[in-house]
Amino acid sequence: MRQKILAAVLLVGVAVALGWYFLWDRTQGSLVLYGNVEIRQVDVSFRVDGRIAQVLVDEGDSVRAGQELARLDDDLLRQQRDQTAAQLAGQKAQLLRLERGYRTEEVEQARAAVARARAVADNATINLNRVSAMRARNAISQKELDNARSSDRSARAELRSAQEQLDMLLS
């Protein structure tokens, strides 16, 4: 009998809950509030890093999409622009020099360097021949002969380098 009473009370409770759910106007239960929403922090982003130089709006101002809110300090960007412009000017000057060719003074300097290197190389060859003859008679040490050979090779390398520099200027 207890179970029947419990089942009946439970059934009545479910019926009341369902009735209340279906019969009650749901709009009466919605909550409407009025007031202001205050934002204390706003994240603003820029395409580049930098220091903010000027803020153009105040807290509470209405803004629209795309409106400028702040400006970055552009000193660093101006310096980079000026440096790049200077590099460009230097590159243009070098291109102009390459297009016009080398000045006659530069060619003459290269010819003089070849003549000097040839004279040094010829002297080193003469010295090597003299030292070789002396070494054949055991008049000097092997070290002096090695030094003369080294000087001759070095002088020949300097001559080749100077000649290649002149060839580059002439081509």
Results as ranks from 00 to 15, higher is better:
27 T>H: 04
71 R>W: 02
18 L>C: 06
55 V>M: 04
90 G>E: 05
132 S>F: 14
150 S>E: 15
110 A>H: 11
55 V>R: 12
116 R>C: 03
37 V>T: 10
84 T>N: 15
54 Q>K: 11
94 Q>F: 14
96 L>E: 11
140 I>W: 09
154 S>E: 08
166 L>Q: 06
5 I>G: 08
46 F>Y: 06
11 L>D: 00
111 R>P: 04
8 A>W: 05
24 W>A: 00
50 G>N: 05
13 G>R: 06
148 A>T: 01
112 A>Q: 07
2 R>A: 02
143 K>P: 04
89 A>N: 12
158 E>D: 10
67 Q>Y: 14
161 S>F: 13
157 A>N: 12
38 E>N: 13
12 V>I: 00
58 D>N: 13
150 S>P: 12
35 G>K: 12
32 V>M: 06
115 A>F: 12
61 D>I: 07
65 A>Y: 15
71 R>I: 02
108 E>F: 11
44 V>Y: 06
66 G>I: 02
6 L>N: 08
68 E>A: 11
87 Q>N: 10
67 Q>T: 04
80 Q>M: 07
129 N>A: 04
52 I>D: 00
26 R>A: 01
31 L>C: 07
99 E>C: 13
39 I>L: 14
68 E>K: 14
1 M>K: 10
67 Q>R: 07
17 A>E: 07
57 V>L: 11
129 N>H: 15
4 K>P: 10
142 Q>I: 00
146 D>M: 02
80 Q>T: 15
109 Q>H: 07
84 T>F: 15
89 A>I: 03
42 V>I: 09
139 A>D: 09
100 R>D: 06
59 E>R: 14
49 D>M: 10
133 A>H: 12
123 N>S: 04
24 W>N: 01
75 D>V: 13
159 L>Q: 15
49 D>Y: 10
156 R>L: 01
66 G>E: 01
18 L>H: 09
53 A>I: 03
69 L>I: 03
102 Y>D: 05
140 I>S: 09
169 L>F: 11
104 T>P: 15
79 Q>G: 12
100 R>L: 02
166 L>S: 04
146 D>R: 13
136 A>C: 03
67 Q>F: 14
26 R>W: 02
16 V>M: 03
42 V>S: 10
132 S>D: 09
46 F>I: 00
111 R>L: 02
170 L>I: 05
139 A>Q: 12
18 L>I: 05
139 A>F: 11
71 R>N: 03
58 D>C: 11
170 L>C: 02
96 L>F: 10
134 M>C: 07
98 L>R: 10
14 V>L: 06
127 N>K: 08
25 D>E: 04
28 Q>Y: 09
21 Y>N: 01
4 K>D: 03
78 R>E: 05
89 A>F: 13
61 D>R: 15
109 Q>C: 01
49 D>T: 14
126 I>W: 12
56 L>P: 12
89 A>E: 06
146 D>F: 09
37 V>M: 09
141 S>Y: 09
156 R>F: 08
100 R>I: 01
158 E>L: 04
97 R>M: 03
164 E>R: 15
92 K>I: 09
23 L>E: 00
11 L>I: 00
69 L>K: 05
136 A>E: 09
15 A>W: 05
22 F>N: 00
158 E>C: 04
73 D>C: 02
148 A>C: 03
97 R>Q: 04
92 K>H: 10
82 D>V: 12
